[in-house]
Design a protein around this nucleic acid. Structure first.
Lengths: 255, 255
DNA sequence: CGATGGTTTGAAGCGACTCAATTTACGTGG
DNA sequence: CCACGTAAATTGAGTCGCTTCAAACCATCG
């Protein structure tokens, strides 16, 4: 059996045991494909499952009364959509495929079992979830306090940073399958102003665009310019509980 | 031994076993008091602990390069500060007491043990954390897409809603120990504009102010007016794993 | 009872929005 | 392989919500 996406992701933070790896792979059985643009599920819809991204980009969003859309988060390979449905019977947001996508569908109860059988993984997932929460906080701050130029620069740096963890992105260029409207819906600007801000970014020479490919010429300098903090590179695992407590009766008796 | 704050909080969502209650109480041993305004720890500071709020209000915030402050979250009785320090060795934000406060300090490793000994609680905490994440997303949306009037109305409704869960708040009035500057730092407005928006809120007759006491005259109507969704009332627990898996070797052998 | 921090009000300026038109890119069918 | 149709990107002009700057008012407390 080959490595699973979630397994690969978690391996970045922890040396996984065989049993843990096995449990993660076991989650990723029901695979489904969606072409770009597919609306996977809608805000408010009843949903029994979580999804692990196998490939492609997605985003979650909410729609306001006036039809305006707020994109809350982008999902990349190895991400889990826990936030959307773990706390309620109905989804807190709409999930839509940005590019062609494959997802692994897992019943919420299986996710729950993971906490029981592999508490260390449960705690690690909690830590990752916390890091994502901080990351949302960063974007909130960005939207709340900074201008269009900075918001977009921050978004680009953040996406690049996440793709690095996830895609082994080597260079500073990456494909951005988003329209300027999408970008605006993510950072709280109109498409008109997104366009102007992108132009301003190019004018500094720190960002180049060619079609949908974006290259950040000098990541460090841009990061300094807009006061960007990378939240995705490392997370603390020193506090996690001992491995595999519940899975092995033998081990358990010794304790 | 009397009920602990976290225990009370989690009881709202789940019938806890004796062992679970005991474990939660055991976490709340090291209690410390802080007068209003105390800076508990600063963004970037190394920190080994989590904190459970025993009483009072606090907030977490980050400070931008230009000195601007963004308040990310308010903490009330029974809340845990996991987000700030669980994912890194250094705090992601500054924690400050708004009113006189008591906190229970718990080492991160004890929190980790909870996942091993009481996986159901770990999963529940995960779900609560997810609901908070959605709540932050709501505020992001509010700041990103709505005007001052709506942002502040939404903040007031949100605070009231959380105090209800936590404080058994009966009426529609509550004390708001925040300056207008604080409110502005939370919703992304200047104190000048906060003042004007508050006036506008009063002018509708839906909100009354008397010193630091705020009364929402007609909660439902205001909620409808600003399209507010309550995220705190209930959370789904049907997916949680079976109780107490790892704590009892005897039970474990049976499995 | 002065001092300090918070609230309130006024006036002017700007960043981002709205409205609108034009150009460019791209997928599809002939 | 080109013509066409539609979506996206680009650019311009006018407007408005919120900010900035500034000053006056008010409450609480040592």
């Amino acid at each position: 059996m080959s490595a699973s996406q979630l397994e690969t992701r978690l391996s970045h933070h922890l040396d996984l045991t065989f049993a843990e790896r096995d449990a993660l792979r076991w989650l990723e059985r029901r695979e489904r494909s969606y072409p770009a643009g597919t609306l996977i599920f809608h805000e408010g819809e009843a949903i029994e499952n979580l999804y692990i991204v196998g490939s492609g980009w997605l985003h979650s969003s909410v729609t306001l009364r006036d039809g305006d859309r707020q994109i809350l988060r982008f999902y990349f390979i190895g991400d889990i959509t826990t936030t959307l449905s773990v706390a309620w019977q109905h989804s807190a947001a709409t999930l839509q495929a940005v590019s062609d996508t494959t997802l692994f569908e897992i019943p919420k109860a299986h996710f729950g079992d993971l906490f029981r059988k592999h508490p260390r993984l449960g705690a690690l997932l909690f830590a990752i979830s916390a890091s994502e929460q901080v990351s949302i906080g960063d974007r909130l701050t960005s939207i709340s306090k900074t201008d269009g130029f900075t918001r977009i620069a921050t978004l680009l740096l953040d996406i690049r940073s996440r793709l690095r963890v996830v895609d082994n992105l080597e260079g500073s260029a990456f494909e951005l399958p988003l329209t300027q409207k999408d970008i605006g819906d993510a950072v709280g600007l109109t498409k008109t102003h997104v366009n102007r801000s992108l132009k301003a970014l190019e004018a500094t020479g720190l960002v180049e665009r060619d079609g949908r490919v974006v290259r950040i010429t000098d990541v460090d300098r841009l990061a300094t310019l807009v006061d960007f903090r990378d939240r995705h590179a490392v997370i603390a695992t020193d506090w996690l509980p001992a491995v595999g407590a519940a899975v092995s009766p033998v081990l358990e008796k010794v304790t």
